[in-house]
Design a protein around this nucleic acid. Structure first.
Lengths: 208, 208
DNA sequence: AATTAGATATACATAATGTATATTCAATCT
DNA sequence: AGATTGAATATACATTATGTATATCTAATT
């Protein structure tokens, strides 16, 4: 008696739809709520018009839901434009563009701020977000390798990568935003700082 | 029948001692615990050898305890050296020193990282920490005012202040540390970035 | 000896995550 | 058409936290 199983177009379509609805409700709740502390699966479920148990069915846990929201935001956040940026002829222009893309990403949906808050209370979720950020680090590394003069030391390259990685992170964006800057103003400041971080890579006199 | 009240040296001394013991236990718990999520007043109370209710008596709430821990760490974190730094003749050297002092502060006690995590879940605690950070911003502002050339625009000054404020923040320190750097290596990178942030203030040609 | 401050004991209210079990209902297969 | 299956629901329960309330205990002061 092997249980006969089947795939149901209508069923899985409906399931995908509720899934979308829950993700939408979750990101809205994150956006409108004043703190991640108030973000409960109860709230989300009610906002989506489903039961809390349905959320567990779809995402397994609070963490699963948060990851799904993060991925959804990333999908619609314009990060796909990075591919084009990376192929630009001038790697410095590419870096400028990269900063622009990430500033747009961090500012597009305020839910990303709340998701970064969630990293504080859930180490595994934090790890998942960090892994997703590693793509940014790899992008920066690739650009630095193109920008750096041949005689630039590995240490100087790593310094530049780590610094630019920090400068393009969400916390830096949030700090500059909190100082009362528009997205474009933040972008301008970060771009300038990143350009400055390149200086040690091009000067033929590496301090010694 | 006004209740006669009195101050009791032995009483308040004993109270102060338990208070210290609880703060010590709390910071130890923060230091050793792997996440702020696991930080409960139950744990702290047991570690301090008191009841959870005693913690409420002394600090009023979880937030009150966290603030007390933060202030205790700040008291022994070497921030008093900032006064000397600010009076240095060379404001650039003072800035270097300031970075040094804050790198030492952020790295001295790993509990500060957990306290920053706590900001994510408690908006009022976050506000309290932000207020304490404003002293750093004022220090940076004072130095920038001394460093900036007379013709430097207010905008350029604000850019430098906000950027250096972000560069000397805990999140930046944590990001650079996570990249596998020692405290001194982080300090060196941040100092270089801060010096670079001063460039636009001294060049007599402000881009136009 | 009465009183008082600080700590304790016990109990309770509330909210959140997560698990377990049985059930409803519409879509799919034979 | 009737049996079966997947998704969602209903209900219940265990666990862990914060925070409040009330009464009691004990040692320091008056």
């Amino acid at each position: 008696m092997p249980p006969r199983s089947y795939v149901s177009p209508a069923r899985s379509a409906a399931a995908a739809e509720t899934r979308e609805r829950v993700i939408e409700a979750a990101s809205r709740t994150l956006r409108e709520g004043e703190s991640i502390a108030r973000f409960s699966l109860d709230t989300v479920a009610k906002a989506a018009g489903v039961t809390r148990l349905t959320v567990y069915n779809q995402f397994g846990s609070r963490r699963g839901l948060l990851e799904a929201v993060f991925d959804e935001i990333a999908r619609h956040g314009g990060l796909h434009q990075l591919a084009d940026a990376m192929t630009m002829d001038d790697p410095r222009a590419a870096l400028d563009r990269m900063v622009e893309i990430f500033c747009a990403f961090w500012s597009r949906d305020s839910a990303v701020g709340r998701l970064h808050d969630a990293m504080a209370t859930d180490p595994e979720f934090a790890e998942a977000v960090r892994e997703r950020n590693e793509r940014r680090r790899r992008g920066v590394t690739a650009l630095i390798d193109r920008i750096a003069a041949r005689q630039a030391s590995p240490q100087a390259r790593k310094d530049a990568v780590d610094l630019i990685f920090a400068l393009t992170s969400y916390p830096t964006f949030a700090s500059l935003s909190a100082a009362g800057r528009s997205r474009d103003e933040v972008c301008r400041v970060v771009q300038a700082a990143c350009r400055a971080a390149l200086q040690p890579l091009t000067l033929s006199n590496p301090s010694s």
